[in-house]
């Protein structure tokens, strides 16, 4: 596991990043491009602030997702993830 007390996690981006999606993104499974581990987005390590979001693999530290929002336009860089897996189950409530 990567040790860094500054980070929180992907749960916190449900609001700022999730508003661009029609589903709850914290349950989306992310497959790491470096170590191939599979984690829910909510469990990834979060760096950055309200403008730029960096989500890293809990196991190897690889940057899985980068998100940048400028004036309501979201740019998502997902080259650190080989796959994103979504479940079509109904959103909570």
């Amino acid at each position: 596991m990567i040790e860094d007390a500054r980070a929180s996690d992907g749960n916190a981006v449900a609001g700022p990043l999730g508003r661009f999606f029609a589903f709850d993104i914290t349950r989306m499974m992310v497959i790491c491009a470096k170590c191939a581990s599979e984690s829910p987005l909510g469990a990834l390590r979060l760096y950055g602030d309200q403008m730029g979001i960096v989500l890293r693999c809990v196991h190897c530290g690889e940057v899985n997702l980068r998100a940048l929002e400028v004036k309501g336009v979201l740019s998502l860089d997902a080259r650190g993830a080989t796959r994103l897996i979504l479940h079509s189950t109904v959103d909570p409530l």
Binding site: G10, N11, A14, T26, L41, A43
Partner: peptide, 9 residues
């Protein structure tokens, strides 16, 4: 804004 997050539920 919310409720938010479906993973930690």
């Amino acid at each position: 804004r919310g409720p938010l997050g479906g993973y930690f539920t």
